[in-house]
């Protein structure tokens, strides 16, 4: 579904992503793990067109998207839920959701179906973005991404700063989306959570992939977890 071939990206003058390659299969949950500053978020920004790589190539469903603009990438069916959630604070919950609609992309997700998945979004539909709690904002950000009926969902630290109950809800949602065929790329600091839902993991350090394994493999590899993933 997605092939990233040796991309190199810079953040200002600093060389953040130093030749990262990865492959995602349809319906799979893949994580990018690693400490702050390892290059995870920049990798995501390169995929969605916010930070095109200086070298390397990105192919999505057989089409090269390396130099596409973010809105073009989104129209192909790649949705990103960014780290800070980026809810439009002056818009209501319902307006936030409606902005996610893409005319060319209809499917399972509509205003009704996301409200059914997350009833809180119906209850709060007239509240403004800035009146929501962190957990509600995260749910809204995911729902807004679903409104465009993507094939591939990218989530950047969805569990950050949230209560265990909401983390559980989000983890279950990610899991069930993937069983329905959605491909998911997940960046997380919460390794425990990813071990419960992911299929495969990549561990990044200083802009390079230093380890990749199946979920079982990472579960059993204490050394990697202690060295690169402990807080």
């Amino acid at each position: 579904m997605l092939q990233v071939e040796a991309i190199h990206s810079y953040y200002g003058e600093s060389y953040v992503v130093q030749g990262i390659s990865m492959v995602l299969k349809e319906g799979e949950i893949l994580t990018l793990l690693g400490r702050n500053g390892a290059g995870k978020t920049t990798t995501l920004r390169s995929i969605v067109g916010l930070k095109p790589p200086r070298r390397g190539k990105i192919v999505f469903m057989g089409r090269e998207i390396t130099r596409m603009k973010p809105f073009e990438v989104a129209r192909l069916g790649i949705a990103m839920v960014p780290e800070e959630r980026r809810i439009f604070s002056s818009l209501t919950v319902e307006e936030n959701l409606k902005i996610g609609i893409q005319k060319g992309r209809v499917g399972r997700w509509t205003l009704e179906s996301v409200q059914k998945l997350f009833p809180i979004l119906r209850e709060r539909r007239h509240h403004r973005g800035n009146q929501l709690s962190g957990g509600e904002q995260q749910i809204l950000a995911i729902a807004r991404a679903l409104m465009g009926n993507p094939k591939f969902l990218i989530l950047d630290e969805p569990s950050e700063g949230l209560a265990p109950l909401i983390i559980k809800l989000i983890a279950e949602t990610i899991k069930s989306l993937s069983t329905e065929g959605m491909t998911i790329l997940l960046v997380e600091q919460n390794v425990e959570m990813t071990l419960q839902i992911a299929h495969r993991h990549y561990v990044l350090d200083q802009g390079k992939i230093i380890y990749s394994d199946t979920n079982e493999g990472l579960k059993n590899n204490r050394e990697i977890r202690d060295r690169y993933l402990s807080v």
Partner: peptide, 15 residues
């Protein structure tokens, strides 16, 4: 209105 707040995010939604 969303564009006045966060252009990149509007772009990421395919607009």
């Amino acid at each position: 209105r969303a564009g006045t707040e966060d252009r990149d995010m509007v772009n990421l939604l395919g607009i």
